[in-house]
Amino acid sequence: MDTLEQLRDRLATRFPEAQVVFVTNPGASAEHSLLLDAAHARDIAFFLRDDPALRLDYCSNATGIDWPEKEITDVVKTSVPDPAGGPAKIVETKSVRVQPGYLEAVYHLFSVALKHGPVVIRLRTANRSDAVTLPSLTPVWRSCDFQEREIFDLFGIVFAGHPDLRRILMWDEFKDHPMRKDYVEPADYEWEPTAHDEVLDKAKAFRASVPSVAARKETAS
């Protein structure tokens, strides 16, 4: 199999209108990945599966990653010359910019026929709130069926074209997406038999009608 750079170039010639970005992995494993744009992802996926030199017929792992929006502080140092002729002063100007958040789906592809891999592809949503739709790759690899349902359940990415997109691990009435970084667990979701400290404080917020032990003592006396 060719390297990932060669694969990116092949995809660029095969799908000239698609955007394929090489994502470097700085870690020790050096497993780099390709970021595909959502509009062409499924076509590219079919190509990866059916191309005789690649034959990535097996999607092993599909998972989501949450990247919440981040405040990044840029510090620019400028040296201001001292008009009196002394040493130049260094002035730091800080500017805060907000890097928009997004959700990411990562797929690890292998070839059972040719026994190579992994090729890692990633898809990104536009944001984390209203534009969270990505094309489903379940029509290409059936193994994404449960895994995309899990990403939908735990991260909230909506996979367009998935045959059966329902929650898989949480119950159907559940509202939030627990694997998101800003998820706050509900305080009253289960009864705590030995409520103490933090749990008791949380429970109070939901059971305002139940007076505290101290209040009950006061009313009794």
Partner: peptide
Amino acid sequence: PKAGEAYARIEGPKGELGFY
């Protein structure tokens, strides 16, 4: 570990067990 990602898999008794 420094920033980066890794996917490792073994042939578990039940099939491919991977950690990402």
